[in-house]
Every structure is written in structure tokens, then in C-alpha cells.
Design a protein around this nucleic acid. Sequence first.
DNA 1: ATTTCATTTGAATAGTTGCTCAAGTGTTAA
DNA 2: TTAACACTTGAGCAACTATTCAAATGAAAT
Lengths: 118, 118
Amino acid sequence: MNEKIEICKTNIVNHGKVKKVNQALPKNREVVELSETFKVLSDPTRLRIVLALSMEELCVCDLATIVNISISAISHQLRLLKSRKLVTYRKEGKMVYYKLDDDHVVNLITQATEHVRE
Amino acid sequence: MNEKIEICKTNIVNHGKVKKVNQALPKNREVVELSETFKVLSDPTRLRIVLALSMEELCVCDLATIVNISISAISHQLRLLKSRKLVTYRKEGKMVYYKLDDDHVVNLITQATEHVRE
DNA sequence: ATTTCATTTGAATAGTTGCTCAAGTGTTAA
DNA sequence: TTAACACTTGAGCAACTATTCAAATGAAAT
């Protein structure tokens, strides 16, 4: 890994800084995982789903009403959130109730909200 | 806005919950802004750039070396980060030095890091 | 058994995104 | 003034994503 690619002629301007930053940066693996966490929350629909589920356990039908999107679209997003272990579900007859599996994410959203309100 | 779309037959299963959640959810505008904040950090390249700039002010050339990506690609991403007011720059002769404009984002990343490490 | 209904799923599609390539700025050095 | 260099920019493209549509599943009601 870390193959050379064409950079600028001088290649590196400030060796000291580059070395220092390179050592302090998280490993690739961790950066990718981090970015994937943010990616889940980067879509308005998914964000609304997470926000809604942070308040109440909800069935797919009610979620669709709240987020104002088709049942199918909600279901696809819930599938994604399920695979990322952000939500769990519980079946009750024909209906399926979803809830947050990971309250940690709500803190992230809260902090981002403060950031947006400036 | 809020046009009706085809939802399930019963339309709403639990009126009480739906009403409560609907009132508590942030306005569309705010949800979109929130998701856009997360979107900036949802790409590994941009995340690395932000992480690097949180440690040192860096020129485009050194940033490209650190992130291991072409100068052009870095420049495109910096343009985006500039437009979102996340970075500022300073010109010094031929070179351009970038730095974070908004330390707030670093807190977000720190908290997400804790979340990932579980 | 058949129908109804909540939900899931796969395929198709329009829109977005991150990168490369080639050309363009503007500044410094020769 | 010309050449070299750091960086920017626009077009083009391949990969990805969110949604829709149609069909499928599986539980309850008839």
C-alpha cells in the first residue's frame, strides 16, 4: 500500500509537518469506519428516521407517514440501518416495530445540531 | 408542502405517537443542514483533509502527499470545504496554505471516533 | 382456501459524487 | 519575455445512491 502517485515537483515542501501529521493521522481502516458513520447520517430521510426512532418505537407505516415517504423507500432505508446495527425490530402480527439500537448516535446528532445553529 | 402520498391502508396506526413525534421533529430546513454537515465528513478523503488540517496549517502540495491523492483531486475537495466555510486559506507567493476555519467539527469527529471504537 | 393488509425485496432509473485529464491562472525565477 | 511551478477549474466518466415500481412474503381475517 501507499503507492507513489504524481504529486508536485518539489514533492514535499515542509518535511517536518508532513512527517508529524502522517504519524498522528488514524489508520486507513479507522478513517473509513468514521466516514461510514457520518455517511449514515448524511441523508435527510435516514436522519429523520433516526430522529423519530430516538423518541418512539414506531411501525413502518407510521414512520412512512412521519417522514412523508413511500413505504418501500422507508423499508429500503430501514434495511440499511439494520445492517449497520443502528436499529432493531420487533414483529407483532403483520406489523414490524423499529427502534434505535444505538443511542450513541443521538449524541452525535445533538452535537451537530449545536454546530448548525451558529 | 406536505402533499399526501400513498401510505398504508390504515394510513396511521398510532395517532398519538405520530402526532407527538411530528411535533418534536426539527423543521425540514434544519434536518437538511444537519445532514449536509454529516455529508462533508462522510468521505474518507475529506475526513483525512480535515483531520490533517486540525493539526497543522498545510499547503496543497503537502496535503496531497499526506492524503496520497492527486493535486487536482485535493483542490476540488478543498474548494468544497471552502464553500462550506470549513477551511480558510492564505496565499504566500505561489503557494496556498489551508487551515481549519471551524474547530467545532473536530469535536464531532472526536465523538464519532469514540462511537466507532466499541 | 381466499382475500386483505403490512412489510420486504429486486430491478430499473435518475441524480449525485469523486476522480482524472487537459487546459488555464498567476506568481516567481531565469 | 520566457519558462517553471503551485494551484485551480471545467468537462467527462465510472461508480454509487435514493427512489419508484411491480412482484413476493407471510400473518390475520373472512
